[in-house]
Nucleic acid binder design. Sequence first.
DNA 1: TTAAATACTGACTGAGTACTCAGTTAGTAT
DNA 2: ATACTAACTGAGTACTCAGTCAGTATTTAA
Lengths: 199, 199
Amino acid sequence: MSKKDAILLVATHLLAIKGYKDTSMAEVAKITGVAQGTIFYHYNNKEELFLAILKSFQEDIVEEFSRFRREHNFPSGLEMIEDVIAFYLHMASQMEDRFMLLHRHDAYELARVNPTCHAYLEAIYNCLIDIFERAISTGQEDGSIRNVPARRMAMIVFTMVDGLVRFHTHNLYDAGVLYEDVVQSCRTILQNHVAPSRS
Amino acid sequence: MSKKDAILLVATHLLAIKGYKDTSMAEVAKITGVAQGTIFYHYNNKEELFLAILKSFQEDIVEEFSRFRREHNFPSGLEMIEDVIAFYLHMASQMEDRFMLLHRHDAYELARVNPTCHAYLEAIYNCLIDIFERAISTGQEDGSIRNVPARRMAMIVFTMVDGLVRFHTHNLYDAGVLYEDVVQSCRTILQNHVAPSRS
DNA sequence: TTAAATACTGACTGAGTACTCAGTTAGTAT
DNA sequence: ATACTAACTGAGTACTCAGTCAGTATTTAA
């Protein structure tokens, strides 16, 4: 791996677990095993390094989620929802550092003054919510999901699933026991009770 | 108001909107209109000031939520849920600064190494989730809410409502349009469809 | 009218910060 | 053999920060 990539990886981890202000470029350099100057050779300043992390996150997550849609087939929209929830949680543990970055305020504060940062964040959230929305729309077409506003319900489902992840990272409750309840709740909210042929 | 209280108020606001590391004691002093040393006279260090804020938040929120329960009567548990959601959002805008503090990582990081901080956080969350749980239990007794695990469902409802608040503070979506959907979703999840007399 | 306790002040300190820059090195083209 | 380049280095710079301290004002008690 190039030193540039190694710096990005170490910085992602430190920024995730310690936050922007508590992460010093000196520490990133030391852990990566490069000189401090090397970081500034590749990234002009701390903010650019942070943006590079968001950019790679956005690219990777779009890639992973579209691969998921390519490689899986779902018997119905309602069943797809459950697989999407499981996949989301899988990604959140696979990309633990970057999801933790999403749960910090650093990115949102930068987004207020930096349009590039705002664009990355929006792209990431759109990707995360899109996949729930797609499942709901699919379910509405095949009749397994009732007639609800797809985008807004996708955001609510997202909120619940993301809440699980946050409970876990905040270390206050054992979120694992909530998984089944969340899946069941989503089923209850979305499930169509009238026969599909009725519409 | 005493200078001590004034310092607490200003610090709460700054810590909420800028975060722990980005808030300097010098700025707190300047905005409050006291000398830097005055802060350290009342609070031994920055961490103690932070804990004092959490403590007052915990006390106030317990007070407000138990007042709500004292002063309101609810025709049924299911209807109580809707009022609780509205009240929660009311409190979140009333105590905007302190709820924003809850959405930052600062407190959770301190809680990892500081048992007092952990205790305050746990008390706050318990209070927030208790009121949802109480509504669900009430509804199960009067038959308006179905037989679901009360505590865990309370956490899920909390997750949705808190998600609304977070969307708002993160400034990414207009969360207002989601309110009705969240209330409707909660009703769908919890509502009892069998006649109360059947049990 | 003291004396003691409490409340407050702001200049100061030393550790830590992001970032710079003159210079080295390893590799490649001429 | 010479010239050139991108990657890399780490000591140095200017600055910010939490916390200290010696001293002053204000309140309380005898």
